[in-house]
């Protein structure tokens, strides 16, 4: 077993043990913090498929996070007000069922990623960053002006949505759901990296000319990666909205997109657990230094600077050394 695998297992063990301890010690706030860390991890794991393997630096991934959030918000809003979403030509009602909400969130964000990808993946480098940023801003301002769903103020969902067989109002149970989603996403990401698709996508990032020369189309590979990436980040958005029981346009903000990128860089680009480590560090620092100084971002920025300058492989690179090629 490599050092990186051991480290990943240790992180996973921590993500199981710490909230369990907090549950036994009756510290629900710690569980909420851990839930936040896990959900942000999931969002960044989604981005890591596009950014880490595919090399697509998207500064608009908050779009999918926000779409997931609003999918939850809109469905639950209609359910809690007993107001159908649509009556003609056929009736669509809101829902408080998490699996249903997740399905809608994943499909909606995947579709959005497909359309945005079709338009933006024709560019690369700085232009790609700018186009994805522009899409992010479009969605952000659209959400602000969408008064039917709270406009700038967002909307509150009074009771957390349901999951069959669980009481999601108990923090540790909702945490378990979120962690399960993260573990599934990581498992998928790990398999993808070693798969046919992972090999081709990884090569398309390094040498697109070569990929074309063997008969594969880098654009299609990137489009599929971007769509999957958006779907996973969308699922995280739905969970995030459920955690806070609140949705607002800030879920679409470009700062959030930037933070997702920062999680990945801090943890280790293209490392399986990179986004998890980055997001957890972010939440921990946000809580502890944030409680001590309003200007905690300065310290986080300093950490980012140190890692970019001295540890190209992020925290995982520092601990576990250079990434090994699969095979």
């Amino acid at each position: 077993m490599t050092r990186e695998t051991l480290f990943n297992l240790a992180v996973l063990a921590g993500l199981i043990a710490l909230p369990l301890y907090a549950h036994l010690a009756e510290e629900p706030f710690t569980i909420t913090l851990a839930t936040r860390a896990v959900i942000l991890s999931l969002a960044a794991v989604g981005l890591n498929i596009a950014l880490g393997i595919g090399g697509l630096v998207s500064l608009g991934h908050a779009v999918f996070f926000g779409i997931g959030g609003y999918a939850m918000g809109i469905l639950a809003f209609h359910a809690q007000n007993y107001m159908p979403l649509m009556e003609a030509p056929f009736l669509i009602e809101g829902t408080k069922s998490m699996p249903m909400i997740w399905l809608v969130a994943v499909i909606a964000s995947a579709l959005a990623a497909l359309v945005i990808g079709l338009l933006s993946l024709r560019t690369s480098g700085v232009y790609f960053i700018m186009i994805t940023l522009a899409f992010g801003q479009m969605f952000y301002y659209f959400a602000i002006s969408w008064s039917a769903y709270g406009g700038e103020d967002g909307m509150s969902i009074y009771v957390r949505n349901d999951f069959p067989g669980l009481n999601t109002l108990v923090p540790i149970q909702f945490y378990g759901l979120c962690l399960a989603a993260l573990v599934l996403a990581l498992g998928f990401n790990g398999a993808l990296a070693r798969s046919r698709f992972g090999l081709a996508l990884n090569a398309a990032r390094q040498v697109p000319e070569r990929v074309r020369a063997v008969g594969l189309d880098p654009f299609r590979l990137r489009l599929v990666a971007f769509t999957i990436s958006g779907a996973i980040t969308g699922l995280a958005g739905a969970l995030f909205a459920d955690l806070n029981r609140f949705v607002s346009p800030t879920m679409f903000s470009w700062q959030l997109s930037g933070e997702f990128i920062v999680f990945i860089i801090i943890g280790g680009t293209a490392r399986l657990f990179g986004p998890v480590v980055g997001a957890c560090l972010f939440v921990v620092l946000e809580h502890y230094i944030g409680g001590w100084s309003d200007y905690w971002h300065i310290w986080f920025g300093l950490l980012l600077l140190v890692i970019v300058l001295f540890g190209r492989g992020g925290v995982i690179g520092l601990i576990a050394g250079k990434a090994r090629a699969h095979g």
């Binding site: 993808l192 046919r196 698709f197 081709a200 090569a203 594969l216 599929v224 699969h326 095979g327």
Partner: peptide
């Protein structure tokens, strides 16, 4: 892996995401 990329191109179906290539 570089040689496998060529073989993958030759065989096609590059969207398999589960089985290790």
């Amino acid at each position: 892996q570089n040689a496998a990329l060529g073989a993958l191109g030759a065989f096609g179906r590059p969207f398999g995401m589960v089985r290790p290539v």
